[in-house]
Simulated assay, not measured.
Amino acid sequence: MKPYIEDLKKLKHKLINESDFSIIANYFMDIVEQHPIISNAKIVKNKSLMNVVMAVGESYFNGKVIVSQSRIMHVKNTNFYHGTVMLNDCLSVFCYFEDLKKGMLSIHDSNKDKLFHVRITGTVIGKNKTYVDPYEKNTPTVH
């Protein structure tokens, strides 16, 4: 088993149970730093995930958001996606577990010297299609 698999399981647990999103974000960054997770990933396209990133960006910036330099990585033999994107020239990092239908997005707004975290949750609609809802009402969403 790859050494990061256990850490991804712990990250899943934190996404479900942790209310302090900075703990989730820090744990995710620790995984990326400690393991060659990028070498076990490939660049993919995921329109649903990019749509939710854009929706969160539009909500945060109160209107249209300029998306650039997006990169989504899928870790081989897992249901885990992570990536980076610039939203209105603010570096944003995200992770998402397709099997769990949960993830989070962090936006570093250097103009306000602020780090914004939001949990994202997907809902299965139709046959094998997932709608990722950044405004899920059952869990805290903004810290």
Rank of each mutant, 00 (worst) to 15 (best):
D99E: 14
V52A: 04
K45L: 09
V56K: 04
G126D: 08
T139H: 06
F94H: 09
N77W: 01
T121Q: 07
K102I: 13
D7F: 04
P3V: 07
D113C: 13
K10N: 07
H117S: 10
S48D: 07
Y135E: 09
M1P: 03
I66S: 06
K114M: 14
N26A: 15
K112Y: 05
N88V: 06
D99Q: 13
V142S: 11
E58L: 02
V85C: 04
F116W: 10
F94E: 01
N17G: 07
K102P: 01
M104T: 02
I43C: 02
F28M: 12
N40S: 14
M50E: 02
A41W: 01
I31T: 07
K42S: 13
F28G: 03
T84L: 04
K76H: 09
M29D: 12
T78C: 03
N128Y: 12
T130C: 14
G63C: 13
S106I: 11
H35K: 02
S92T: 00
V132F: 02
Q69W: 05
V32L: 10
N46H: 11
Y96H: 10
V32Y: 07
K45V: 09
H74C: 02
P36F: 10
F28H: 09
G122Y: 08
N128A: 04
I120Q: 03
F116Q: 12
I37C: 02
H117P: 11
N40G: 08
D99S: 15
I38M: 09
N26R: 15
T141N: 14
A41H: 00
K42E: 07
L115K: 09
P3Q: 14
T141E: 15
R71G: 00
R71Q: 01
D7N: 10
N17R: 07
D113S: 11
K2R: 05
I43T: 07
S48P: 01
I66Q: 03
D30L: 10
G122N: 03
A55N: 05
V118H: 08
K76V: 05
K42V: 12
N77S: 14
M54K: 15
H74D: 03
V65T: 04
M50R: 02
E136K: 06
S70P: 01
V75N: 02
V53L: 12
S48V: 06
H143L: 12
V67R: 05
Y135H: 07
H117Q: 11
H108Q: 11
C90A: 12
S48E: 11
G63H: 02
G103D: 04
N62G: 06
V56T: 13
I16Y: 05
T121L: 01
E58S: 09
A41F: 00
Q34S: 11
P140R: 03
M54G: 06
K112S: 15
N77R: 13
I23Y: 01
D20N: 15
D20P: 00
Y135T: 07
H143A: 11
Y27D: 07
F61Y: 15
T123M: 15
G126A: 03
F61S: 15
I16H: 03
E136C: 06
R119A: 13
H108Y: 15
K64R: 12
A25I: 05
L49G: 00
N111I: 11
H74F: 05
L8E: 00
F28S: 11
N77T: 05
M1H: 05
I72V: 10
Y27Q: 13
F97Q: 06
C90N: 09
E136R: 02
M29R: 13
